Amino acid sequence: MNKQASFIITAVENGIGMITLNRPKVLNAINTAMVGQIVQAMEQFDRNEHVKVIVLQGTGRAFAAGADIDEMLEKNTIELELLNQFEDWDRITWVKKPIIGAVQGFALGGGFELALCCDMLLAADDAEFGFPEVGLGIMPGAGGTQRLTKLIGKTNAMKWLLTGQRFSAKQALDYGIVNSLLPAELLSEETMKLAKTISEMPPLSLRLIKEAVHKAVDLPLSEGMHAERKNFYLLFSSEDQKEGMCAFKEKRKPVFKGI
């Protein structure tokens, strides 16, 4: 890895690709270089046949407590346009493998946007979420207004975006933002258990299910159904489909190969 790799830690264990945000002294505040490293690691895991699922987590007291204000303070409109800093963020959308986020402490601003890029979220019961950008005279720019609104609806999203207030992990669960709440000391263990369960499923099924669900969010029902059917038919060309059905019939555990 290059010198900038100190912003994250990566590892692969039992089919799980792990990315840990590693700027604990600044509560894992996200700068442009860190985003680039996160996306690069995700794309490498996406191409690695030994990785079945990706886990994204923070270290220290926060998942990520927002963007790095020092990096943006003196920027002007033209500099931001030329920097095109959100290009890397957009690439996360194209990662085919499931991404599980584990949120402890704060997930604020850009940190919350990063969490919303995950396909599933587990949170410590003392975690806090929010978009404080309005109090800085700006607004979310990496998908926060869009993803939050799609998840919790216009009026709920307006409340949190316009006030900049934080909401609790329990509220995030009630809104359907997170899948489950856990004691902080069990968050990592339970996240890895979930990742292991998913990693044992046939990779092609995981890939096409994720694709179909993402289309369900953005497309009309008829178009989403069409995409689902195409993916359903495609899987009948895989060896894993034959293995899965034969194993079911023979009452044995399937051995999936990802082909």
Rank of each mutant, 00 (worst) to 15 (best):
F129H: 02
I9C: 02
G164C: 15
D46T: 09
G15I: 05
Q165T: 11
C118T: 11
N179A: 07
A124P: 03
I54H: 06
L194I: 09
S6I: 13
K150A: 09
K257F: 14
T191G: 11
V213F: 13
V55N: 05
I177E: 13
E200T: 01
H50L: 12
Q57L: 14
V134P: 06
R207H: 12
N84G: 08
L151E: 13
P203F: 07
G244P: 12
T93C: 12
A102C: 14
H50C: 14
V51H: 12
N14W: 05
G111S: 09
I209K: 10
L187A: 06
N231A: 15
K230V: 09
A124S: 08
T10G: 12
A115K: 01
Q104S: 12
T191R: 09
L151D: 08
I92Y: 00
D126V: 11
G60Q: 13
G244I: 13
C246W: 09
Q44Y: 03
A5W: 03
A172W: 05
E43P: 01
L114S: 01
E250Y: 09
M1H: 04
M158Y: 10
G144A: 02
L116V: 04
P98R: 07
E250Q: 15
M192F: 15
A157G: 04
T59N: 15
G244T: 10
R207D: 15
M192H: 06
M18Q: 11
N156Q: 09
N76F: 10
T155A: 08
A33K: 01
I92D: 03
D90F: 00
R47H: 07
L116A: 04
E133K: 03
E81D: 06
L221G: 15
C118P: 09
F86P: 03
K253V: 01
